[in-house]
Design a protein around this nucleic acid. Structure first.
Lengths: 159, 159
DNA sequence: GACGATAGACAGCCTGGCTGTCCTTGTCCA
DNA sequence: TGGACAAGGACAGCCAGGCTGTCTATCGTC
């Protein structure tokens, strides 16, 4: 097989984009037109415990200022609320609102459907194998979220 | 396995980023510090025949104006030259310079090394299988290059 | 009590997308 | 042959998301 390393990278990108593009479209069709994948991922991280801007930044591997921008959008749209932390006056605790959870559930469902579609394409056993290998190769490490950024500028330390 | 569809997407993104980040770093170490993956991909497309801004845009699935910006950078850095097309006065023909090819060769080599590293991790046969499945799932379709953009805004028609 | 670390916010900047508009040049058909 | 329409390229203007640097308030620790 004369496939090159660059092709491999493109396939991975293509796969990601395919999934995410489809999910975004479907989410819009279901009425959540102002939600972008990055918002979904951020809410997920917040719900999982990254309840401050700095935390979120670390979690998503972006600068805290970038995280703060995303948070501002989420707050503005009612997906997240920001309230003072009773134990630390410096912090503003983040919480996903019911509406936010609604979007997350919807997004999760869509992604799962897409995954099942892939599963059917390969067959269950093959797919499980594929997914396991992918996980093995990529590792459970954190994933950065930007891209034009990183693509154009390279990666710098964050936060 | 309780892996979710969103995880799958993140694994793909993680894989892509892992490869590309490593490649960019290595390229910088070898002295090409102003080259970004997007430039490499663009040159590849140009060398493969996308010899005008509009072509390149279609090929990379970005608007021709975006392609034009990238081209401007490549020209400025001496990786690509732009000359009038003798057969069509509207077009400016693009050509990769020797320096550009040098970078491409270097990038290709790095990507290949990374691919071989993955190959070792899974074993040759397993890896071939993995790659084949990935290709099958993603399809040979074109891959868009942007990301923060598309991640934040979704995708619109291009060119 | 003082110093260093951390959270958050402001300002400013960059890159890379996109759109719209305009002009030039080709093409194709009446 | 002329006119309509398509296509290439370039300009201007806008947006999102990242980053850095700087500042203040607050915590924690010595």
């Amino acid at each position: 097989m004369s496939r090159s390393g660059a092709d491999l990278a493109l396939l991975l990108l293509g796969g990601f984009r395919g999934l995410v593009d489809a999910a975004t479209e479907e989410l819009a069709r279901r009425g959540y037109q102002d939600v972008r994948p990055v918002h979904d991922f951020a809410m997920r991280a917040i719900a999982a415990g990254a309840d401050s801007a700095s935390d979120l930044g670390r979690n998503l591997s972006v600068a805290k200022q970038s995280a703060a921008k995303t948070i501002a959008v989420l707050v503005e749209r009612g997906y997240v609320i920001r309230e003072p932390d009773p134990h630390d006056a410096r912090r503003k605790r983040l919480q996903v609102t019911p509406l936010g959870f609604e979007v997350m559930r919807e997004g999760e469902a869509i992604f799962d459907e897409l995954r099942i579609r892939w599963q059917r394409q390969l067959g269950t056993a093959e797919f499980a194998n594929f997914e396991g290998q992918l996980a093995k190769l990529v590792g459970a490490g954190s994933v950065r979220f930007d891209t034009p950024g990183w693509m154009a500028r390279g990666l710098d330390g964050s936060a």
